[in-house]
């Protein structure tokens, strides 16, 4: 076992790992941060997306030892300092961008990364930018709407408001 230290949601943390310990296991089992979910084993579904040094990655496809010392942000670190929902989180609630909630952490992390890179995306850019995250509940309608709304764009014109 090797102790791996990194910064997660602004705090320095460490946990014992094997070579094969995935970043997702490190977070879920090592640190008890179970907001990061595992929905597949082929790096397709995106439920496990976290920010690694500011970039969205699939934490189930990264070894913990490979990212020792990194800055990691998870869904548990997305709320405002006062505990209120962050902009993207709030938009997801306001626009019903989630149902069962299982894909949601990955979806929020992917959306936040998308907006950090492209603060005013088009609908097509949002859809393309979320292609690595599968949601089985929403048909994506309200997710896309939420991301556009989180970018400050007027979504009142979107179908079926």
């Amino acid at each position: 076992m090797t102790k791996v230290t990194m910064t997660v949601n602004g705090k320095s943390v460490s946990a014992e790992t094997e070579g094969r310990t995935l970043l997702s296991s490190y977070l879920r089992e090592g640190l008890g941060l179970t907001g990061t979910h595992i929905g597949c084993d082929t790096s397709q579904c995106g439920a496990c997306v976290v920010h690694l040094n500011g970039r969205a990655v699939k934490s189930c496809t990264v070894f913990a030892q490979d990212v020792a010392g990194a800055e990691v942000r998870t869904i548990e670190g997305m709320a405002n300092a006062d505990g209120s929902l962050g902009v993207v989180q709030q938009a997801f609630q306001d626009h019903h961008g989630l149902q069962c909630g299982f894909c949601t952490p990955g979806m929020v992390m992917a959306s936040a990364a998308l907006l950090a890179e492209n603060p005013k995306p088009t609908e097509a850019e949002v859809r393309h930018g979320l292609e690595g995250n599968i949601c089985r509940c929403t048909g994506y309608h309200n997710i896309v709407k939420a991301v556009l709304a989180a970018s400050g764009q007027d979504v009142a014109a979107v179908a079926a408001e």
Binding site: I38, L85, Q89, F92, D94, P105
Partner: peptide
């Protein structure tokens, strides 16, 4: 009405079976 369950799902505080240790 906005969904109250969203708060826990959006903050990583949902508790699904595999989350229980």
């Amino acid at each position: 009405s906005k969904r109250r369950e969203d708060i826990r799902f959006l903050t990583g505080k949902g508790l699904y079976t595999d989350d229980l240790a």
